[in-house]
Amino acid sequence: MGWMRKDLLTMRELEAGEIVLLVDTAASLQEIATREIKKVPALRGKTVVNLFYEASTRTRTSFEIAGKWLSADVVNFSASGSSTSKGESFIDTAKNIGAMSPDVVVVRHSSAGAAELLARALPCSIVNAGDGAHEHPTQALLDLLTIREKKGHFEGLHVAIVGDIAHSRVARSNIHGMRKLGMTVTVAGPPTLIPPFVQELGAKVSYRLEDAIGDVDVIMMLRLQQERMTAGLIPSLREYAHYWGLTLDKLARHARPDVLIMHPGPVNRGIELAPEVADGPYSVILDQVSRGVAVRMGVLLLLAGRKGGDGG
């Protein structure tokens, strides 16, 4: 099937076939990273704007590299020092950027729904690079690409997502994507970090790390934002690390020997992940990062190449 959508906003709205198309496209572009000259002319003459309202290093850089390897002109617009600090509204900023005729706008924003707002306001393609606690589809896609490479398939796999599910767009996008591909998802964390009715999204729930990681193919550890403590959601980092931190010892005692350890980054070493786990043989964290560039190339290619003839 071909790609028909103007935007990539959520995993929830995609069909399984569309997800596989995105993953396949990314897979086919991976070898560009191994070339001596990492550039193909696919998006020559196309403009990609990275519109980042939230601090981000890896996602923004990943999109920037992806765009450049495809020969697009990539412009970074970050909120600090720009018109937003002069009181311009999100919609006004968006319309101004839209008036400069970009082909793709990649948006990261702390408000859920911001990418959708932008997609309605602008005629160009929008990629959601994270909107509040809502969705982060390219992260889910790079997770899926990594999993398929390591496990060879999706159907029947079981994934545990561990940590602050309530505030995680990565968890939401992965739950939607994985469920559509026939995978089982268990979310785990203290009840204060599990959102209500998450079962209705198709996830199972566990309140004990040891139970959650027992019989899974993949463990995805989420970053714990330190402000969750001041909000009264957890008593202390020390207690969180003790009960919810993944250590070699817990892995050896409870997890399967072929389990994959994933993390969307940046890692709080010693809190959700012991350093030996983050750097250990189970970990595919850096594979995720390199797959991220391929996924974003694939997304830009499918979106920007949608109408033009030079997108192949």
Partner: peptide, 11 residues
């Protein structure tokens, strides 16, 4: 707070 807030990520 309910199924829609969980799905949309809106607090």
């Amino acid at each position: 707070e309910g199924v829609v807030s969980t799905e949309t990520g809106i607090p």
